[in-house]
């Protein structure tokens, strides 16, 4: 497998995952707002916090209102996390790796690209926005389905898995971080607010059913955080994502450094227990975790892509 091709596949998977994550996030938030009594709606700015997009946002918009934030998350090409940008970048990477992917893969990604371009600007109304996001989620599920069913689970597949899992771990930790910050801002003892925040977090990660089956129907802050960090079976938990990176990197040559970092991250995760941490400590913990993720990304680059 060519290093340059491996790199493109890795990024293709990261961008596809990013598009999907942004879609899921926007979808969950649009629905979340409907549950909140009038007058106490939280602002839309927290979505911009998640993707760390304030400077790009402020360049274009003044108000953090629903319309601007959704436009920024869905349609703006100068936001590197927007659905349109991510899909475009994913398509460019597929265009240059068509020769290793199943034939239909290019067509599906191209269809997604055509769909997003044609519809991304029509998302002002909530109804058409939800339809749009639904369609994006369905189409990306189709692409993953095709890849996992039709592509040999060889190096090409492994690099895509690594890209996807790293992007996921990154997004999951960001979503938790924003929930933590929202909880820090809310009044102490605000029982109701806490349920919204953590319940919404599960929805943003499509984790509601998995959480219910594993933990139970009651939404508890510590349980939720423990679940999205440490559950071994839920594919969007941080623990699961890191195990997946480890499993796929082990089949490649030159994986020693990554293995070492992953093991140390894993040990930290096993000892993780939300009830023993204050929200401030949790926020710092996630900061450190994010740094380690970018180190992982750097090691992937160094081990297999650099010339």
């Amino acid at each position: 497998m060519l290093s340059s091709v491996a790199e493109r596949l890795y990024w293709m998977a990261r961008y596809l995952e990013r598009a999907e994550d942004t879609a899921r996030l926007t979808y969950a938030y649009t629905q979340f707002i409907l549950d909140i009594p009038r007058g106490s709606e939280p602002g839309w700015g927290s979505l911009i916090d998640i993707i760390d997009g304030h400077s790009a946002f402020d360049n274009r918009y003044k108000n953090y209102n629903e319309r601007n934030v959704c436009k920024f998350l869905i349609a703006d090409l100068d936001n590197f996390s927007s659905i349109r940008f991510s899909v475009k970048a994913a398509r460019e990477n597929v265009r240059t790796t068509r020769d290793v992917l199943p034939e239909q893969c290019w067509e599906l990604v191209n269809e997604l690209y055509i769909y997003v371009n044609a519809n991304a600007d029509k998302v002002k109304a909530r109804q058409s926005r939800l339809d749009f996001l639904d369609q994006v989620l369905a189409m990306s599920a189709q692409i993953y389905g095709l890849i996992s069913a039709n592509l040999s689970h060889d190096h090409a597949y492994r690099f895509m898995r690594m890209g996807r899992s790293l992007e996921r771990a990154d997004m999951t930790s960001r979503v938790v971080d924003v929930a933590v910050m929202t909880a820090m801002d809310s009044k102490p003892g605000g029982e109701e607010a806490s349920t919204w925040i953590w319940g919404h977090l599960l929805k943003s990660l499509s984790a509601v059913t998995a959480y219910r089956r594993e933990i139970g129907p009651l939404v508890d802050a510590d349980e939720v955080i423990n679940f999205v960090f440490g559950d071994q079976n839920f594919p969007r938990s941080i623990s699961y994502c890191l195990t997946d990176v480890r499993k796929n990197s082990k089949a490649l040559r030159n994986h020693a450094q990554i293995e070492k970092l992953l093991l140390s991250m894993g040990r930290k995760l096993t000892r993780f227990e939300a009830s023993r941490m204050s929200l401030e400590k949790l926020h710092k913990y996630i900061d450190v975790f994010q740094e380690q993720l970018s180190k992982l990304n750097f090691l992937v680059y160094q081990s297999w892509f650099s010339k």
Binding site: L2, S3, V5, H155
Partner: peptide
């Protein structure tokens, strides 16, 4: 076959052409 660009290939001291892959 692999689709390569110039930067993916190099000529080594043995005057053979190699491509840069994840396995070396």
């Amino acid at each position: 076959a692999e689709l390569v660009e110039g930067a993916d290939l190099f000529v080594d001291k043995d005057e053979c052409v190699y491509m840069r892959t994840v396995d070396g």
